[in-house]
Design a protein around this nucleic acid. Structure first.
Length: 853
RNA sequence: GCGAAAGUGGCGGAACUGGCAGACGCGCCGGACUUAGGAUCCGGUAGCCGUGAGGCUAUGGGGGUUCGACUCCCCCCUUUCGCACCA
């Protein structure tokens, strides 16, 4: 063999893998399955190291699982619809499809050069009709089940992307993609009824014990379950306004009802709109001002709480007292009923509001263990639970009990009921853009909204020659697309011209991977029954409440359609850390991206993979350093050299197993290290996925191998003179046997990290069939057992001595040995021994002596 | 403001359920081999005291539990992330 030349080696094995279709799999009921998946990629152009870190992590897991005998599904695909393609089209005049497919081709090449072991036969791209027709299929199924519906509503609008955004896609009032400040618009939109699953999604989060707690917390908060009650306040008929009606509020604190001193309505509330028309100029001006202060205006800091007295009153249903009705800018129209009862004594916002407008403050909750504070000395609201006061028949009742009783009484009187409120809202999926899945419905003058027939799917996205970038749906400008036949009556109809949110595409692609070429159905349920759920899923935490909640929802929809029995799509989730360079996230605009191809050219894909895996745990962010990469390269070259020099000796036929040999102490020690390493690396990879410590375990073994070879003079190291060249003669059969075992275990365990080099070395060691056929090395606990162990001895908590004793020394004997030890005696001398603790068991014992002066 | 996670050498990071703090790597220092070495092999590297053996101090700070605490509990500080008027 020659020097380590990664470029040659890597090309060789990548070609072989491709030609052998090495990572393609079929369902095999005889083997345990393992579905390993990384979040598929948006084909933005060039993948940088930050992107590919995730694929490397998944690849280590996939390759390791394959070696451990699993039937591993490890597919990849492209989240290929979306705005950047369209923006590029507007800017450069290239068609989005051309732009996208070219990017896919380039990025696929990048991934192959990194040596990611994907089943490329299952590759999919969401922009192809063969994929998106099933989005349309899913849409129609959801329409049938009333899970998709259309309504006019106020929606988030990104003025830069010229489209609607779902709530999940508005981050701090800004567009998740471009960062523009989001405004609102009234539009007729399609929604998916995710709220129907709110309770289930929340409850099932408890079962996701292999998800990061952080992601689950974010999802729980996003779903935002609140138990409370709806309660009606009758409006007091005003002069000249006979039709009074009532206002329904939502509250979680019905126990404070006797302190409800006013009603607050959101500016968007229907009654406010109605009253404003009849109201004076001041009313309308105030309303206009409040409506200008939408959610986004609040991001920079708290806006002041302001209100406007409508001049009307309602009756508190429990006190019977009239309470004024105000409009307040901090009441949200889209949450609950858009109306709240103001309880200034026990809600901080209401308190501030009451102080500002000199509204009365009635204390109705007294702390369990203290007196009732008088309202005029309140400096802030008392929001804690307590005992009711000033509450008529409910006086003296504790808050939690009062909530139950008051809710029950309200129900009996027909003025309210207990209810559960969620923050989660339905998923708006209409997008006023071109590069997405056409929504398969038509509008017929006679029949109204008509779904496209299943047999007419896909509704193909027409080619557009030019992109103007204007605000309305580009599809609306193509008469050939818009003008169609009504599937119901055969008359003229117009197609829906909005396309679907691309998160629809990504909410089920992991199911499609199980059966990616099926032309009859989205997937054969049998395939998902075999492969599902995804056992290991990795990707960025930025999808915690986007993709990850949509996927959980859509998986349940497929379940309810009868396509799968899965509740949850992903058993284990790993959110990988980002790659920083010069302290910042890699991005083209910051000019700090590291292109994997550049690194591969210099150091090879294996060194790049090893470095990224070694530098930090997968969940943590890492700071890119060239020196670190070089260090990994050095390690690989070190492995290469030692295998190179030993391969002739240990690679031949008929070398006996080390267990059948007479071994000396040195040889036994090396064997022990080999098996300790097997155990450690195995556990670090599976189940811990501590890839960085797994690598350091391998480094230790290599260091030990070098030390062993230097001591036994069986290796030519660091020199090339004639005299030294004669050194590398191994005389003992035992030495050959233990070296062979160590080297082979090393190469096999290294292979998930540095697959090309490992295959090359494995071949050089005389094996055909590759590392997967060889399997993961087996751990022998007998071999790993040490005959002698070091026992630390503490005196008053400080380690004062270490004793080397036979491993099987009894606790009693150990105690005697310790007390007889000179080093120990020095610290015990002249003091009274209070007790001697022998902690731990077996080889991990420790002696702790407590003395008193 | 609320919630979560985290704070360990010059740096990235180890330490699994309380049991030898600093594995492994980077960097740095030294040695060997060399015409040379930024290659390679070997050794050293938390701080302080000491020639040495050894000792003292150290896991953000302060308390506590324990024979024993990076690990558990309480208070405080800092950082990062998430939520941000959800009634």
């Amino acid at each position: 063999m020659a020097d380590y030349k990664p470029q040659t080696v890597e090309k060789k094995w990548q070609d072989r893998w491709r030609d052998a279709r090495a990572f393609e799999v079929t369902e095999d009921p005889k083997k345990p399955k393992f579905y390993c998946l990384e979040m598929f990629a948006y084909p933005s152009g060039h993948a940088h190291v930050g992107h590919v870190r995730n694929y490397m992590i998944g690849d280590v897991v996939a390759r390791m699982k394959r070696m451990r005998g699993f039937n591993v599904l490890h597919p990849f695909g492209w989240d290929a619809f979306g705005l950047p393609a369209e923006n590029a089209a507007i800017k450069n005049g290239t068609h989005p499809e051309t732009w996208t497919l070219e990017n896919i081709a380039h990025m696929k090449g990048q991934l192959q050069r990194i040596g990611i072991s994907y089943a490329w036969d299952r590759e999919l791209a969401t922009c192809l009709p063969g994929y998106y027709r099933w989005n349309q299929w899913l849409f129609l199924k959801m329409l049938e089940r009333d899970l998709a519906y259309r309504r006019r509503s106020s929606v988030n609008w990104c003025p830069s992307c010229n489209t609607v955004l779902a709530n999940e896609q508005v981050i701090n009032g800004e567009c998740w993609r471009c960062g523009s400040t989001v405004t609102t618009r009234e539009l007729e939109q399609w929604f998916f009824r995710i709220t129907k699953y709110a309770d289930e999604l929340l409850a099932a989060a408890e079962s996701l014990d292999q998800w990061p707690e952080k992601v689950l917390t974010m999802q729980r908060n996003w779903i935002g379950r609140s138990e409370g009650a709806r309660l009606k306040f009758d409006i007091v008929p005003a002069a000249g306004v006979p039709a009074a009606g009532s206002i329904e509020v939502f509250t979680t604190r019905i126990d404070t009802i006797y302190g409800a001193n006013f009603i607050l309505l959101a500016p968007e509330h229907a009654l406010v709109q109605e009253w404003a028309r009849a109201g004076g100029e001041a009313f309308q001006a105030a309303l206009k001002k409040f409506q200008g202060q939408d959610r986004t205006a609040r991001m920079t800091g708290e806006i002041e709480k302001e209100g406007f007295d409508t001049g009307r009153t309602a009756t508190n249903p429990f006190t019977g007292q009239p309470v004024p009705i105000w409009v307040a800018n901090f009441v949200l129209g889209e949450y609950g009923t858009g109306a709240v009862m103001g309880v200034p004594a026990h809600d901080q916002r209401d308190f501030e509001f009451a102080r500002k407008y000199q509204l009365p403050v009635t204390v109705v909750i007294r702390p369990k263990d203290g007196g009732a504070p008088a309202s005029d000395i309140l400096t802030e609201a008392a929001e804690s639970d307590g005992v009711l006061v000033n509450s008529g028949p409910y006086d003296g009742v504790a808050s939690d009990e009062a909530r139950a009783r008051l809710t029950g009484d309200a129900r009996k009187r027909g003025i309210g009921e207990g209810t559960i409120q969620y923050r989660l809202k339905d998923w708006g999926i209409s997008r006023q853009r071109y590069w997405g899945t056409p929504i398969p419905v038509l509008y017929c003058d006679k029949c109204g909204m008509v779904p496209e027939k299943y047999e007419n799917l896909p509704v193909v996205l027409p080619k557009i020659a030019e992109f103007s970038g204007r605000g309305d749906s580009p599809l609306a400008q193509i008469p050939q697309f818009v003008d169609a036949t009504c599937p119901q009556c055969g008359g003229a109809a117009k197609r829906e011209t909005d396309t679907m949110d691309t998160f629809v595409d990504s909410s089920w692609y992991f199911l499609r991977f199980c059966d990616p070429h099926n032309e009859r159905v989205p997937f054969d349920p049998k395939t998902v029954a075999y492969w599902g759920p995804v056992d290991f899923y990795s990707g960025g935490v930025e999808h915690a409440i986007l993709h990850l909640i949509y996927s959980r929802f859509v998986t349940r929809v497929f379940r309810d359609i009868g396509m799968t029995t899965l509740d949850e799509p992903f058993s284990r989730l790993l959110t990988q850390g980002m790659v920083l360079n010069t302290g910042q996230v890699m991005s083209k605009s910051k000019g700090n991206v590291v292109d994997p191809d550049d690194m591969i050219q210099q150091f090879g894909a294996d060194a790049l993979r090893l470095y990224v895996m070694f530098v930090a745990p997968p969940e943590k962010e890492i700071e890119w350093t060239d020196a670190g990469l070089e260090g990994s390269w050095r390690f690989l070259a070190r492995v290469w050299r030692i295998v190179d020099q030993l391969s002739e000796t240990i690679g031949g036929e008929g070398i006996p197993a080390p267990g059948s040999q007479q071994l000396n102490d040195e040889e036994r020690a090396l064997r022990r290290k080999t098996h300790e390493t097997i155990k450690r690396v195995t556990v670090d990879l599976d189940p811990r996925v501590h890839l960085n410590t797994a690598v350091s375990g391998l480094m230790e073994l290599v260091n030990e191998l070098y030390a062993f070879c230097n001591r036994s003079r069986c290796l030519v190291v660091g020199r090339s003179t004639e005299e030294d060249a004669r050194v590398g003669v191994i005389e003992r059969a035992g030495t050959v046997a233990v070296l062979k075992e160590a080297i082979e275990a090393l190469v096999l365990m290294l292979s998930p990290f540095a697959p090309h080099m490992a295959e090359e070395l494995w071949e050089a060691l005389g094996h055909t069939g590759g590392v997967v056929a060889a399997g993961w090395p087996a751990f022998d606990p007998e071999v790993a057992k040490a005959s002698e162990v070091t026992v630390p001895v503490q005196v008053n908590g400080k380690v004062r001595a270490r004793l080397l004793v036979p491993a099987e020394t009894s606790d009693e004997a150990l105690r005697a040995l310790v007390l007889a030890d000179l080093q120990v005696a020095k610290h015990v001398e002249g003091r009274t021994i209070i007790k001697v603790v022998i902690a731990g068991a077996g080889p991990n014992r420790l002696v702790s002596i407590v003395v008193k002066t």
